[in-house]
């Protein structure tokens, strides 16, 4: 069976790959949006923190024999704690300066972290097995659906919308949104804004690490894995609108699917389609599809 002259297996296969990539785009751009919204920092270390999550899972398995499910909990906590140390010792000094300083610092940190891991583990990737409970797949008739990939998509959707709910529909989220607009006044209401900023950065970093753990069994665990992804993720954030939570989620999944479909219908453009969309969005709506001009 064919759709638009393309076999359904190929079409849905690419759609699935698009959704998988979109899941990681959404998770990573969500973390970036949360961090940018409150800290006004463009966190270029995000890709390295995603890589740290994957390496943390790999090392937990290699050194301590702790498998995937343990890693899903431990890696985000450890990498998030490292993020908190970075925020307290370095980023905190930059809040009153131009965005550029935060970007330069986090970019430098990313190079250092990636360099250390490349030195230790080389450039080639380390394999990380799919957990037995999620091995295998299901033949849906029109395509074969690997269980692990279905899990990644479902888990990403749940995490993304859970985060959206936390920020848009809870009291804690109203503190975060208000502090994004006027931190000085929110603090004068009795809320400890500096602590909230620290925890928010830790949460955004933990999201990156969680994505890294989930990516381990799909891509290889390599020092370069974050650097390869982060440029696309920044394009996603720009298209969705810097700081927009829903923008990051919908744009992440949407652009993953668009990229997948481009691979089917016009493969030559598949690596550039996201950047073409970014250029068009910047021309028509500079604040992004869901963003508001600050």
């Amino acid at each position: 069976m064919e759709i638009f002259g393309v076999p359904t297996q190929a079409l849905f296969g690419q759609l699935l790959i698009g959704l998988i990539n979109g899941s990681f785009y959404a998770l990573l751009s969500l973390g970036l949006a949360v961090i940018f919204g409150l800290l006004n920092i463009i966190n270029f270390t995000h890709g390295a923190q995603y890589m740290l999550g994957a390496f943390c899972a790999y090392l937990l398995l290699e050194k301590l024999g702790l498998g995937y499910w343990w890693a899903l909990v431990i890696a985000p906590v450890l990498v998030g704690a490292l993020g908190i140390i970075i925020e307290r010792t370095m980023l905190k000094q930059l809040y009153k300066l131009d965005h550029l300083y935060g970007l330069l610092l986090t970019f430098g940190l990313a190079l250092v972290i990636q360099g250390v891991f490349r030195n230790q583990y080389g450039s080639s990737g380390q394999p990380y097995a799919i957990p037995p409970a999620l091995a295998g797949g299901h033949n849906l008739g029109f395509m074969f659906l690997p269980t692990y990939r279905a899990w990644v998509i479902v888990a990403s959707v749940v995490i993304c919308f859970g985060t959206w709910f936390l920020i848009e529909r809870t009291k804690l989220g109203s503190y975060l949104r208000a502090a994004t607009e006027n931190p000085e006044l929110v603090q004068a209401f009795g809320i400890n804004v500096p602590r909230m900023i620290t925890l928010t950065y830790g949460f955004g970093v933990a999201l990156a690490a969680l994505a890294g753990v989930m990516a381990g069994p799909i891509y290889q665990v390599s020092p370069q894995m974050g650097a390869d992804l982060i440029i696309v993720v920044f394009a996603v954030v720009v298209i969705g609108g810097m700081g927009s939570i829903m923008g990051s989620i919908l744009t992440g999944f949407g652009l993953g699917v668009l990229e997948g479909l481009t691979k089917v219908f016009y493969p030559e453009a598949s690596n550039t389609v996201i950047f073409i969309v970014m250029a068009l969005v910047l021309l028509v709506k500079p604040a992004g599809l869901f963003g508001t001009q600050k």
Binding site: K171, R177, E181, N182, L185, F189, G190
Partner: peptide
């Protein structure tokens, strides 16, 4: 006045914690 644009009226009203 410091009214927050990203919050609705009820959220603005409930924002300051009870001290």
């Amino acid at each position: 006045r410091g009214i927050f644009a990203s919050l609705d009226v009820e959220e603005n009203l409930l924002l300051p914690p009870q001290v």
